[in-house]
Nucleic acid binder design. Structure first.
Lengths: 213, 213
DNA sequence: GCGGGCTATGAACGATGTTCAAAATAAGAC
DNA sequence: GTCTTATTTTGAACATCGTTCATAGCCCGC
């Protein structure tokens, strides 16, 4: 409790925190290169030059590590989409539509560039009983802001909840096209075709919205 | 090679085929109840009253078993969607739209009813290097027919490839809404809300299509 | 009944995530 | 500086997996 103890524990804690960050970076690198399914505790221990058991002094288990990497991926995705959104003025009709398309294209590009990290966001299944951490909802709400804003222009009479629901629908729809298209689960679709698909989908939907008045 | 040998091998083969079917049913039951991730070779051996090693006389490995169960799921999905499609006349504009919505609603219902079997279709990742079997593409093409047909009414001037691409886009979009909505990955959405979302999405898209002429 | 090919068996192997008793290390007291 | 104590690091051990394979048993035609 005295000064020396506080200093001590903070210095130790600092060392520990450095190792923890090394571990997170190693995990991120391995996931990015080989996919989340091939993440191995023994590999990570070797990566950061530590014994196998020490991994469990730095994180509770591998699931926590995957969640942390996921939060970093979500943050990068948020930054990328925000950048794409900023390029268009959502207060004008055409700008609003172009922003939605730009976000969708950036989403597709992000999925292509960070294939394994992006897939890890959705492939990872929480162990039974564990709950999605709070930061997931928080980060997603932030991402959705970029979609809700142009919808204000395109759905001027709608209530905020209606716009929020539409933002959710559009995000999920674009995600579906990107996900099934790139993953090649049914048929592998080239990236350019996926881009034309999401653009077509958004233009048609926006046309329908504007027609409603 | 003579008759008796043929009879023999066919009777033995018959027994083998019966065990194989038992194994497939056991796997399907376990996946349906607990998800594909908790499928265990030892459990299956116990289910059909056979030694652990015998599993590998009936199928190459568990991946093959999961693929077989997947093909059965796809067949059921095809039947369900076909039934929903048959309820509407795709040659009239309103009927075409209603058919698309009915198919989407049936898709959502199928996903709800056969949660784990449906998720197994998409969660399962082929082991590195192995290819998607042919029946996947074949079954999917068949499913898509129910979507392409009403698009003929809604996109009268379009080329067949354009209609096929739009069918792909719509399927993926609806899948995205259903998948992310029901799975509760971001926010768990009640089934009824998911239904309203896909219906809204399809009505807006169809309105956009009709507006194009 | 009997001999030869096929099949079923479950012990064994190699991975894997996770735990834990013991060793090593660091901190504090004098 | 040295000793005691608390903390951390270690890697062997454990429990589960999928998968393999030598062996034992069985069924068939003869």
């Amino acid at each position: 409790m005295d000064r020396k103890e506080v200093e001590t524990s903070s210095s130790r804690g600092h060392q520990r925190e450095k190792q923890r960050e090394q571990l997170i970076l190693a995990a991120e690198s391995r996931i990015a290169n080989s996919g989340v399914a091939s993440l191995r505790a023994r590999d990570l221990a070797g990566d950061i030059g530590v014994a196998l058991g020490s991994i469990y002094n730095l994180v509770a288990d591998l699931d926590e590590l995957i969640l942390i990497v996921g939060s970093r991926t979500l943050a990068r995705l948020d930054a990328a989409l925000g950048e794409a959104a900023a390029a268009h003025d959502a207060s004008k009709r055409d700008g609003a539509i172009e922003r939605l398309i730009a976000i969708a294209h950036r989403y597709r590009a992000f999925a292509s560039e960070h294939r394994f990290l992006w897939r890890a966001l959705f492939e990872f299944q929480l162990a039974e009983g564990r709950e999605v951490p709070d930061w997931v909802s928080a980060d997603l709400k932030h991402i959705f802001r970029n979609i809700v804003e142009p919808l204000g222009t395109l759905m001027p009479r709608a209530q905020p909840e209606q716009r929020a629901l539409m933002a959710h629908t559009l995000f999920c729809a674009v995600h579906g096209v990107v996900s099934l298209g790139l993953q090649g689960k049914m048929v592998a679709v080239p990236a350019e075709i996926v881009d034309t698909e999401v653009e077509r989908l958004l233009r048609l939907t926006c046309a329908g919205l504007l027609q409603e008045g």
